[in-house]
């Protein structure tokens, strides 16, 4: 009897309590708690292996001295500050940062490219999972920066979900979303595809009223 754990929400599939062996579950089986696909589960004993894997190279951080931010980054910085002001009930300040964010967003969208495909997204996601998050985690652990570790933990999980959704979309096309709704957690960015939204977000644990449906495009 084996146990498998969901990498997103921590749900445990314990074969001792189930009628079906994990390997015999259908490919489209989903985590009953958060809706993550079967591929997001790992054998529970494997966890100790992960820790060994953590001695990633100890190379010094490449000095990326005060680099200029891109329009897109400036837009995200300003929309973050807008949300910060909103949380403090500073409505005018929030509105102004939002306008600044929209200005930069428009600038960033002026640059129009049409040579992208889904693979370009998956490449970036793989690089995040294999390199960017790992290095960020290593440094944050050394510095004992738990705030940074929080966004790294949430971000890695959201990115894993994105990867599995994109991979499924590549192989099954629009059938991946047939008769299903799409939601995004407005706090951490978790994407849920299905019809039973979890009562709390499996990643950041916010109650479901902050998990918002993404409407269909109206023509």
């Amino acid at each position: 009897m084996k146990k498998y754990v969901c990498k997103i929400c921590g749900y445990i599939y314990d074969e001792a309590n189930e009628k079906v062996k994990f390997d015999d579950l259908p490919d489209d089986w989903k985590c009953p708690l958060c809706g993550a696909p079967k591929s997001m589960f790992q054998l529970l004993e494997e966890e100790s292996e992960n820790i060994k894997e953590k001695n990633i190279e100890n190379n010094p951080v490449v000095e990326e001295d005060m680099r200029e931010m891109t329009y897109g980054e400036l837009s995200a910085l300003c929309s973050n500050l807008s949300r910060g002001c909103e949380k403090q009930y500073l409505s005018r300040e929030s509105e102004l940062f939002k306008k600044l964010s929209d200005y930069y967003d428009k600038k960033s969208k002026e640059k129009n490219e049409d040579n992208y495909n889904i693979d370009a997204l998956i490449d970036k996601i793989n690089n995040d999972l294999e390199t960017n998050y790992k290095k960020a985690r290593e440094i944050s652990e050394k510095e004992k920066d738990r705030g940074a570790l929080r966004i790294i933990t949430w971000g890695e999980k959201v990115t894993l979900i994105l990867k599995s959704l994109l991979t499924s979309y590549q192989s099954k096309g629009e059938d991946s979303f047939k008769d299903k709704k799409i939601y995004v957690c407005d706090i951490c960015g978790f994407i849920y595809v299905g019809n039973e939204v979890p009562s709390i977000c499996p990643i950041c644990k916010v109650p479901s009223f902050k998990i918002l449906e993404i409407g269909k495009e109206v023509r």
Binding site: C85, L121, I151, V184
Partner: peptide
């Protein structure tokens, strides 16, 4: 388009939260 809209939103939220932890917590 609906799926891509969710991806756009999700990445924006991740970017906002990341820059918040990178020194822009408090306005």
């Amino acid at each position: 388009k609906q799926f891509l809209k969710a991806i756009i939103r999700s990445n924006r939220l991740l970017a906002e939260d990341t820059v918040r932890e990178a020194g822009y917590m408090l306005p």
